[in-house]
Design a protein around this nucleic acid. Structure first.
Lengths: 356, 356
DNA sequence: ATGAAAGCGCTAACAG
DNA sequence: CTGTTAGCGCTTTCAT
């Protein structure tokens, strides 16, 4: 079967044993470039070109090779290709968890953007404890991705070192810093906390409480919120902290705890819409009127919350734009195009709905 | 003339000067096994052993090598390793979308399980249209994963062909079939539809409606639900179908549409808790009492729904167990251990809460 | 436009 | 226990 198919007369194994397919010492059994080349009657490199740079090959050759590829069911080996070329078409992204729709909303457009350009996205889950981010990173770097997307800007010295040594484009997301490793697209959590404080103070609220995730960026918003209150001579009655990843249940329990401790806040600022959702559910089940008895402010503007509690006031963050933008700067860099803005603040906005 | 850049004579390397560290034509610059070996004063293969089979090496050697690794910041190249050994420590999983918490709940324990065993999970998103599953699969197979986890059991002939040709362990999940490709862990969507029909009929409901995702498995549940109703001489008033991935919003709109069409169902069976959540939100905003005016049945038993609408009746599916189990059978197979059950029905149960 | 030779960095298979 | 040799399958470089 595996003979030149060029012109008809296909003699059955005509004696000469010259190129009998000798099993090499450790063949993997799968079809290789060489097999396709033999079938198509060309050299391996030509098959490679058909796949990677078809403009260098004549239409006839392409046709013959395509046929051979289809006939053999050849699937390229990107381990070999990546090893030889130092380009893997692989891009890694590290996020804390799959359990948080916030990050997913960023990853999805990133993935779309990259796969449209022929890259594959590999996800790494750091789990919120930033403890072993370095190990994860090494595991990821050992696959030699062409670039990497990080969540957050607070990395250990070792992590930065690894990243620098890898000499690949890096995009940090979900935060801002004056000293990015490479490129950056995020927004200011400090500003969020401060502006929310201003907003709520401006609405006349004076008894504040929080339900806040034990997450680095959530804590930044929290502290900034408290600081801004202090500037106004106010303070936060109480803050309930809950472990990550957060759930609606924790929001419910958070409010339950605040009330059990005897607090009667006029408004509760939650570190995410998931928690705010839980707080609203709990308030509702207790017959509290929102915002008259108690107002609620969330963060992120998640769909499911907005469609369950349309009154939820929140902070809108364009997560999809963040993902898209991260993909775009990466692709620009990888294709040698100039990257206009290495640092981008995508901003945020307070969405005032009936709950606060 | 083009050759002018060549340093040194054209003559064949006449002679000797052999061991000058001649920069290889295309070095990638990063630290290699060889560099570590040189520093540690051992051979490359010994470094490899320290990393992969330390039990074959003396403690002293390990120590020396470890030091050299730390000193150089060496990060193994798994492209090269995988190419040489035909084992990549990479396992792929294909799911329809990241936007559905159902699948995430399966993937998370799968990931935990695999990474604890030193494997890395690579996610592939097929998007619900099973159209180009084959292209995605080829892109994934080109990274030579050691095994693959699929969502669903309905694959094209080409897909099955690719999978067979790859000769790697395969686990299909989220469904049952008499003819799995290899291993299987799922449950019967047919049974779900039928049992829900029985349950609701038994509770005395007679006017049924559905809000159902345009998803293969959801449609199986739907048809089975309708068939079971027919067996009882009943029928479904109306079914609103919504595109995937589904959202809470679609659930709201689904109920709105049912009511706008003039239907007054006694009970609405939704193809997921996300949709049921939306239906409940819409019902609530219209002042409908649940279950007195209208009952609601969901599917999957998602946390966020249960904690927002604790009364939501639903079908419980142990998604985490499915993921864990998939990981376990895979690891068993990969380590040569016998796999006790190649096909596992993890079952489901109807959770009767106050909403139905 | 196509091909030949030489690796990419690592590990399997054998020595010693 | 450690080293030597020979590839894994592909792409680069340089030649034709």
């Amino acid at each position: 079967m595996a003979r030149s198919s060029s012109s008809g007369s296909d003699k059955p194994a005509s004696g000469d044993t010259g190129d009998v397919r000798r099993a090499s010492t450790r063949s993997t059994g799968s079809v290789t470039l060489g097999d396709v080349a033999k079938l198509a009657g060309v050299s391996p490199i030509t098959v490679s070109r058909v796949l990677n740079r078809p403009e260098m090959v004549t239409a006839d050759t392409i046709e013959a090779v395509r046929r051979a590829i289809a006939e053999t069911g050849y699937v390229p080996n990107l381990l070999a290709g990546g090893l030889a070329s130092s380009r893997t078409k692989l891009i890694a992204a590290i996020i804390p968890t799959l359990g948080n729709a916030m990050f997913i909303d960023t990853i999805q457009p990133l993935n779309d953007c990259l796969s449209a350009a022929g890259y594959q996205l590999m996800l790494g889950l750091s789990g919120f404890p930033e403890l072993c981010e370095e190990d994860l990173l090494k595991a990821i770097l050992s696959r030699r991705p062409d670039a990497i997307v990080l969540t957050g800007v607070n990395h250990s010295a070792e992590t930065r070192q690894c990243l620098l040594a890898a000499k690949i484009p890096v995009v940090e997301t979900w935060d801002l810093t004056a000293t990015p490793i490479d490129m950056l697209v995020g927004f200011s959590h400090e500003k969020v906390g401060a502006e929310v404080a201003n907003y709520l103070f401006g609405k006349g609220y004076r008894r504040f409480a929080q339900v806040c995730a034990e997450d680095e960026r959530a804590q930044i918003r929290r502290r900034s919120f408290e600081a801004a209150l202090r500037d106004k001579g106010q303070s936060c009655l109480s803050t309930v902290c809950v472990p990550t990843p957060t759930t609606v249940r924790m929001g419910r329990e958070g409010l339950a705890q605040l009330l059990a401790e005897g607090h009667r806040p006029e408004v509760v600022f939650c570190s995410s819409d998931v928690l705010a959702h839980g707080v609203l559910a709990e308030a509702q089940s207790r017959g509290l009127r929102v915002p008259d008895d108690m107002a609620v402010m969330g963060f992120a503007d998640l769909d499911f919350a907005a469609y369950t509690f349309p009154s939820l006031s929140t902070v809108h963050v364009d997560r999809a734009a963040m993902g898209r933008h991260a993909g775009e700067v990466l692709l620009a860099r990888l294709s040698g195009r100039p990257v206009d803005k290495k640092m981008v603040d995508i901003g945020f906005s307070i969405v005032a709905r009936a709950s606060a």
